[in-house]
Simulated assay, not measured.
Amino acid sequence: MVHTRVRQSKKMKSREQESPSEVSDRFQLNREAARKARGATRVRGAKGAKGGSQHHGMECACGAAKRQRVSTVESALASIDVLGHLATFLEAGELCQVRATCKALGSRDDSAFDGLSMTEEAARRIYESASDEEKAMLPRHDGEGWIELYHHLLMLRARLTFDQLLGDRVEYHEGDKAAVRAVRRSGQSSAICGNHIMRAGKHWATFAYGGGFSVGVIRPLPGWDQRTLEEFQPINSRYWDDLRRERTPRWVGDVHFCHFYRTGQCFYSNWEGHGCTASYWDGYNNYDRGVHTLGMLLDLDGGTLSVYQKGQKVGTLKDGLAGVYCWTACTACLQGYLQFGSASIERGYDVTDVQAEEYKSA
């Protein structure tokens, strides 16, 4: 502190000794330095303002370009031809998301498509472009939406899979949803092709199964795989009250399921009363119990379920089938059969019988 005061005192003393001209010169120098400093500040400010203006201009240009791209995409999607082409790459659920998230594509207001939204019109056009055979197997139900019908068309073209597992006695075999296996020696569980609903026409399936499994058809049971049931077998009457509550106008007739066993026995029911009915079918004596691969034909035009072995028809298991069905495989509960086993399903069947070939193409 002492040294600081000495230096300040010396500085003040030296300024007191300056002449008037020296004071004037020093004042001019200080004023010039201040002026230059203000000028430099203005230059920096101008440069900053110019840079900010350029940056703002770039942002505006980018925003305009983005809006132009969005406008171009929206304009393209506003074309039913473009949307129809894109829809062929989408699942039905994804098409529903498009309808829900884009007002222009999902709105029915002032529509040019007879009250349909653009997404529904796109689904309708895809269905109308399907083959005659496909449309014969998928007649439209009263009140059914076109996107729902499009979903069933996609399922008709896809490989068969057991989408629903009911009961904890069955699981997928090595992660393949087209194959299941029993995981316990006792108990009842079922696997259902719940996404593949058959409503009309002729449907073929190939089953490879062994052990304590039965195969056949059952009414659609949406949501039943979410019930976390320990056991389920449609032949068991303790489930029938709940099953009857699932009935819809699409359940036509009184054959709600029909199961075929490796023994050659066949059972069906309308889920009324206290027991199933055995079907004494023609061809029972020709059935080979040693063959573990068989074909099934559900003919909803004729209302029959038939069984095939080695490419030839063995017999008709049951008639009177009508309405909607799904393929199913269940762990059997017949006395004397172990519950271990497996079952797999595949769409179609290789028919070698000439008469069956003619029937298949009819």
Rank of each mutant, 00 (worst) to 15 (best):
L77K: 08
A78G: 15
S79K: 01
D81F: 03
L83P: 02
G84A: 00
L90I: 10
A92C: 07
E94H: 13
Q97T: 14
Q97L: 11
A100Y: 12
T101Y: 08
T101W: 02
K103T: 06
A104I: 14
G106H: 08
A112K: 10
L116P: 04
S117T: 13
E120L: 08
E121F: 07
R124I: 01
R125M: 06
S131P: 15
E133A: 14
A136N: 15
L138P: 01
P139H: 03
H141G: 03
D142R: 15
D142L: 14
D142V: 15
G143M: 08
G145N: 07
I147W: 07
I147G: 14
Y150W: 11
H152V: 01
H152C: 09
L153F: 09
L156W: 04
R159Y: 04
L160I: 15
F162A: 09
L166F: 05
D168L: 11
V170F: 00
E171R: 03
E171N: 06
Y172S: 11
Y172D: 11
H173F: 07
A178Y: 00
V183P: 05
R184L: 09
R185L: 05
R185N: 09
S186F: 11
S186M: 08
S186A: 08
Q188A: 12
A191G: 10
I197S: 01
A200F: 09
K202H: 04
